[in-house]
Design a protein around this nucleic acid. Sequence first.
DNA 1: AGAATTTACCGAATTATATGTGGTACAAAG
DNA 2: CTTTGTACCACATATAATTCGGTAAATTCT
Lengths: 160, 160
Amino acid sequence: MDNSIKVKFDKIDRKILEILQANAKITNAQLSKDIGLSPAPTLERVKKLEQSGIIKSYHAKLDPEKIGLGVSTFVLVGLIGHNKGNIDAFMKEIDQIPEVIECHHITGTGDFILKIISKDINSYQKLMLEQVSEIKEVDSMQSMVILSTFKDSKVLPIPA
Amino acid sequence: MDNSIKVKFDKIDRKILEILQANAKITNAQLSKDIGLSPAPTLERVKKLEQSGIIKSYHAKLDPEKIGLGVSTFVLVGLIGHNKGNIDAFMKEIDQIPEVIECHHITGTGDFILKIISKDINSYQKLMLEQVSEIKEVDSMQSMVILSTFKDSKVLPIPA
DNA sequence: AGAATTTACCGAATTATATGTGGTACAAAG
DNA sequence: CTTTGTACCACATATAATTCGGTAAATTCT
């Protein structure tokens, strides 16, 4: 497995990546037609992209509201200290909360930004009070509730 | 197609959803083993979940760094006005920028939060100066650069 | 309660798809 | 040039998805 930062791929590979990002369920036969190759080398290319780590995984995207998840938020979290120990401890706690679906270390206003998804405002409040704010490394929290989502693309813009 | 907010599904469906969120490439045969049914009804359930819109789509997840995308950011955007016309105009522009992979309307500090991914700091700056800040409805922008991502789960916590 | 109806399931046959193989052309390296 | 390696195709095989007929359980209706 190649672990270097940048990996080489050609124009055809890029097209494969674009297609599979948008629709992972396409058959190899259809994919091969779309890129203009026969099935065998097409599959070979996909396997290589998987083995090289360019393609990390495949996921089903669900409709949050239809499974009863009505409230999504971003939360800016400030920690009491910025040393590695604190950050690791914070991460360890965050990792165990499935409602926290993203956690990024950022520059700017706060130290971290979380994306949290929960059933409703009540369960969100409960989660924040009883789980997030209970993490001892957490100093400040600022919530931004998502009123609506206009764009949520799973397709990354692959540079030329 | 059911378009209501909440759709019903049982314990077995939830398990299917959990599995397909984590690994969309699982074979129907394996999935049926994992949930304890035979392949036929398993497939039937998956199809129903797709038709009901609970499962919206399937996507390949790529490694951003390996395709040359080194800079990810969140941007808080304030608009000059908050009327529907402005918001729609803003959205229309945002929609055409592939580097903006998410756009949410939020409460709190700003009006919108964007997630942007680009090649490097230079191309990020170029994008912000020449595209985002050029949208006439945009008033303020505050960038938060992601230093590192600790969690990026594609699995939503399905409520009991 | 009992009959009718619907729903969910299974096993097996069929169809579609993925995967493996051998051979060929092209390109790059020696 | 010649050699080596790479990428490709067509075709054969293996694996998986899908369809079908029939059965049992659950639900609805009388």
